[in-house]
Amino acid sequence: MEVSPYTVAVPDAVLADLHSRLVNTRWPDSIPNAGWSYGASLDYMQELVAYWRDEFDWRAFEARLNAFPQFTATIDGQNVHFIHVKSPVPSAFPLLLLHGWPSSPGEFLKLIGPLTDPVAHGGRAEDAVDLIIPSLPGFGFSGPTTEAGWHPARMADGLAALMTGLGYEQFFVHGGDWGSVVASQLALRHPERVQGLHLTFLMTSGLRPEDGDPTEEESQLASDQAMYSMTETGYLALHASKPQTIAYSLVDSPVGLAAWIVEKLNKWTDNDGDLESVLTKDEILSNITTYWVTATGGSSGRLYFETAVAGMMGPAIERVEAPVAVAIFPQELYRSTRRIAEHNYNVVRWTPQQKGGHFPALEQPELLVADIRESLRELR
């Protein structure tokens, strides 16, 4: 596998075009005082876009990315971008960090220092890891996928090949959202190589007859999930059935892309009604701009379609037998209980967290770092 060094360097013309589009935004109407009840709040979107247009500094985020070693490789015909940070500790072991939608490796920047150099961040040398943080095929600086069939199993095989090319025969994997799904496929398809998983998001199949009656907690979770499925999964249905239709808006309109992502950030974070209590405008816009400058708003959504066509939506048919540590953040989308999860995963550690939602690496990085460290001690 040929690995090439990579530096993020978005052309000035791309940023100038973005600014022009933001200046000439054609805004929709909104019901007065609607807030977020109909979707992305018009008042908030106008405030965010004004900041994007007049104050946001993409070059500063580029510099943050470029402070870490980045590379690209061609795997199974697809360009794959990844950050690869080796620990200064010689005994460090490899950890693959996998993002989901609508995210990118930028989600994990706060974790890099504490995980690769724990002594410098109040930890112990024996907790040190080498980090490999790819952009999933179709996302971010990996660029759009160029052929059909890039579902989680194929991604898992591609990432296994990447780890081989980097010289790591065995490794651990952390994942949330689609990253958790791909991590599970890695453990199923390459069991001799995956030493353990750390997950914040689970795909489970529910109770079985031999489990008896649901607990009060399980009944509440089932009710919450039914309501979520009824009111919050329109995006999923569109991505899984007609991703090309929404792709025109996501690639042609920066405000359309921002609204599509920001509405999810607002709903999926543990923010008590104030998105910017957990994510700054710069963090929000760094992620959105990554999708914009790489034109991957449409191709990232194709992952849902490819997964559905492959018959892989929902829990995997096989149980993940690699040891799994689970961090349970209270505002995660699909919450479960340990006895339900154990039907689908070999759960060896189950740790409820005090606060946080679907993007813990951004929302609560200290809690996530601590849980990853403690989990990997047990998994090892």
Results as ranks from 00 to 15, higher is better:
residue 18 L to K: 09
residue 175 G to D: 08
residue 27 W to R: 01
residue 340 I to T: 00
residue 252 D to L: 01
residue 288 I to W: 03
residue 344 N to Y: 04
residue 354 Q to N: 13
residue 76 D to V: 03
residue 258 A to C: 10
residue 135 S to M: 00
residue 345 Y to L: 13
residue 135 S to N: 01
residue 121 H to L: 06
residue 276 E to N: 12
residue 228 Y to D: 14
residue 334 Y to P: 05
residue 320 V to P: 04
residue 298 G to T: 11
residue 247 A to S: 15
residue 151 H to E: 15
residue 44 Y to F: 15
residue 289 T to W: 06
residue 203 M to N: 15
residue 186 L to H: 06
residue 221 L to T: 12
residue 362 L to F: 08
residue 371 D to K: 06
residue 82 F to L: 08
residue 278 V to T: 01
residue 14 V to L: 10
residue 278 V to F: 02
residue 4 S to W: 09
residue 233 T to E: 08
residue 286 S to N: 05
residue 294 T to W: 04
residue 369 V to L: 10
residue 67 A to G: 15
residue 311 G to F: 12
residue 225 Q to K: 01
residue 150 W to T: 07
residue 285 L to A: 02
residue 380 R to A: 14
residue 141 F to E: 05
residue 18 L to N: 05
residue 60 A to Y: 02
residue 112 I to N: 07
residue 124 R to Q: 15
residue 273 G to H: 11
residue 43 D to R: 13
residue 184 S to L: 03
residue 338 R to W: 07
residue 253 S to N: 14
residue 296 T to K: 09
residue 250 L to K: 09
residue 65 L to N: 03
residue 317 I to R: 14
residue 9 A to H: 14
residue 60 A to N: 09
residue 150 W to L: 08
residue 362 L to D: 04
residue 104 S to K: 03
residue 215 T to E: 10
residue 379 L to V: 11
residue 237 A to E: 14
residue 322 A to L: 03
residue 142 S to H: 00
residue 44 Y to C: 01
residue 190 H to M: 11
residue 231 T to R: 07
residue 78 Q to V: 00
residue 10 V to H: 04
residue 293 V to C: 01
residue 201 F to P: 00
residue 91 S to C: 07
residue 202 L to C: 09
residue 17 D to T: 14
residue 230 M to Q: 13
residue 222 A to Q: 07
residue 247 A to I: 13
residue 15 L to R: 05
residue 218 E to I: 01
residue 165 G to A: 15
residue 153 A to Q: 14
residue 208 R to D: 12
residue 223 S to C: 02
residue 374 E to W: 02
residue 152 P to G: 03
residue 206 G to K: 08
residue 245 T to Q: 12
residue 73 A to F: 02
residue 85 V to A: 08
residue 273 G to R: 02
residue 180 S to Y: 04
residue 214 P to F: 11
residue 258 A to G: 12
residue 75 I to N: 07
residue 45 M to P: 03
residue 159 L to I: 11
residue 109 L to Q: 04
residue 111 L to T: 10
residue 43 D to N: 13
residue 339 R to C: 11
residue 65 L to P: 00
residue 24 N to W: 03
residue 93 F to M: 06
residue 51 Y to H: 15
residue 198 H to V: 14
residue 265 L to I: 02
residue 256 G to Y: 11
residue 53 R to F: 06
residue 259 A to W: 02
residue 32 P to A: 11
residue 36 W to P: 05
residue 167 G to S: 12
residue 35 G to L: 04
residue 350 W to I: 07
residue 165 G to Q: 06
residue 331 Q to Y: 10
residue 141 F to I: 00
residue 317 I to N: 10
residue 350 W to Y: 14
residue 128 A to L: 12
residue 133 I to T: 02
residue 185 Q to E: 14
residue 173 V to H: 04
residue 158 G to W: 06
residue 329 F to D: 01
residue 344 N to T: 13
residue 46 Q to D: 11
residue 72 T to R: 06
residue 218 E to A: 07
residue 260 W to K: 10
residue 92 A to E: 02
residue 326 V to C: 00
residue 101 W to Q: 13
residue 25 T to M: 05
residue 311 G to K: 01
residue 149 G to A: 03
residue 130 D to S: 02
residue 242 K to Q: 15
residue 200 T to R: 05
residue 25 T to G: 02
residue 273 G to F: 09
residue 60 A to W: 10
